[in-house]
Design a protein around this nucleic acid. Structure first.
Lengths: 332, 332
DNA sequence: CTGTTAGCGCCTTCAC
DNA sequence: GTGAAGGCGCTAACAG
């Protein structure tokens, strides 16, 4: 492997000049610049990143800690982060916390060891509860999940408002006993539940909520009990794509047709929500945009460590489909 | 930040001893070992990875270059890789090539710059065609995609055989004019197409194949033309989950019911294939196992650079569902 | 504008 | 068994 001094020798300059040219510093004669670049090219010189990182004390690396990589929401966010990061000459270290606070802590610790330039994190509820930005030696931008109280850069959906609009939609379609099944491990689920509660209260309706671990199976089991119990909901709402999937499975098992026998709506416009007849009404999240906004916020923060804390809130879009059409016997 | 010399000072030993203890070397008195560990603990000392990497010339980092992170197959593979890698004290650098050979080349180059310990790659067809393991200064294990000719460690599905079995299943169910729509950018698609062709030939049936870019939209458009054209297929097969999704969309648009009006089957047992009535017949891939086997192979290769090349072939599992049930008018 | 040089923090011979 | 010392390859401060 060619080293910087080999390049310097070949170009007939000092290592400092080579370094300067490669760093894009000004104050180098065009002539030397050319000679250096030529030598670099000829020798296929590649700076040793370990050495550079040791010397410069920066890694140009972003840590991405997602709650659950299997959730298509996070997949798409990761894709956006990855795209933008490499465009900005940054590496991405991927970590999947599997909704496990201990793993989150472990990975955050690892990020410290790695001396990353910054971290993107979608914290679980326990982590978020104790989260203080000043506990970390690197900038952190939260994505998807954050509290009103959290003092940190963040990019989130308008969760409460979106859930409110979705609930109102169901109410307007004539549903009354609407049950809300939501993920207990995230701030997002809770905020969406708040929106649901507010909407129900506005119309003087009783609420019916159920917190579950954010998995398909947990949602399926909870929904099964709900529809077969004595509470007789006339519509089901799920707080995210995985939970919504569990609800559909439960309704299939119970042989309940939607919207004829029970209404259905949820979050995340996943491909299958259009394919399951007659289509499922959802709030679509601008997932790629969320990821993009997050990495942009992080890059800005890295560039300007002391700029004021920002929160970017993106709007969810209601996509009405067959699963929530007006009940024949509805009376408003 | 505490450094190794601070720890040494506090423990009353030399930096060499600290280094030895931390590296788990033998030949250190239990007494000094204890004093060092105590000091490390007390000072919350963390070795500087950049320095360690420069000095040791190894990064303990794995590069993961997937074709398309949105494909749930690769999501699950990534999850397994990530799990196992961190369990083995390795970092994972994530790269999403988006089925783009240029991006693949770019990322492979980047892996070289990063001096990674090894790379996991799911190559596009062009990359695979020119792929020679000796062109890279690090071990590479291929995942999901590889040719018969490729001389490299690899973990793949029994693509040809699985496709053969799936096709035979359709034939046995009475389908005759079976069309196969497959991803043109991967060896996988082509191998599955071979299995289809073999199965059709076995029964003296005419083949009907269509290569498309491996995206939902491309598959949808191709399928639309196919079912509305003059070739009148009586069944459709898709070579992976994204393509299968496109096929379903096309059938919906054309208002063709499966299995009544047309049979349907494909690859990848995604959640929605059970939910789309009456369920879609698929070959299920052991995705997590594939990922796990891949990283294990890579770790072995890193440990034993000169061990013989290995190929791990995992078996796909046929899951029969309603979309391929026997046609009423079938005559074998 | 260019070159010389002193480290960045750690590991690892090599003596003792 | 332990310590002293020389780099790993690069950047940046300083001097010219």
């Amino acid at each position: 492997m060619a080293q910087i001094k080999d390049v310097a020798k070949r170009a007939g300059v000092s290592v400092a000049s080579v370094s300067r040219v490669l760093a894009g510093h000004t104050g180098v004669t065009e002539a030397t610049r050319q000679r250096v670049l030529e030598a670099v090219q000829a020798m296929d010189y590649r700076p040793d990143l370990a050495a550079r990182r040791l010397r410069s004390r920066r890694t140009d690396t972003v840590g991405l800690i997602v709650s659950d990589i299997r959730n298509p929401f996070f997949t798409e966010v990761s894709r956006a982060v990855e795209d933008m990061a490499y465009q900005n000459r940054m590496r991405v270290i991927l970590c999947n916390a599997d909704e496990n606070p201990e793993k989150e802590a472990l990975y955050l610790d690892l990020m410290r060891d790695e001396n990353v330039s910054g971290v993107i994190l979608s914290p679980s509820l326990p982590t978020l509860a104790h989260f203080r930005i000043q506990d970390y030696p690197f900038p952190v931008v939260l994505v998807d999940r954050c509290d009103r109280e959290t003092t940190a850069d963040a990019v989130v959906l308008d969760n409460t408002d979106s859930a409110y609009r979705l609930t109102i939609h169901l109410i307007e379609q004539g549903y009354r006993r609407i049950a809300f099944i939501y993920g207990a491990t995230s701030a997002t689920g809770r905020q969406r539940q708040e929106g649901y509660v507010t909407a129900m209260a506005t119309h003087g309706l009783e609420t019916l909520t159920q917190a579950v671990p954010a998995t398909v199976d947990a949602a399926r089991i909870a929904a099964s009990e709900l529809v077969q119990g004595s509470l007789f909901p006339d519509a089901l709402m799920g707080s995210n794509g995985l939970i919504l999937l569990g609800l559909v499975e439960a309704l299939r098992e119970a042989r309940l047709q939607f919207p004829e026998q029970i209404g259905l709506a949820g979050f995340d416009d996943l491909p299958w929500t259009r394919l399951v007849e007659p289509g499922i009404t959802v709030i679509a999240q601008p997932t790629y945009d969320i990821g993009q906004a997050t990495i942009e916020l992080l890059l800005q923060r890295i560039a300007h460590p002391s700029q004021s804390v920002r929160r970017v809130v993106l709007r969810g879009e209601l996509r009405e489909r067959g699963s929530s059409v007006r009940r024949k016997d509805a009376t408003l």
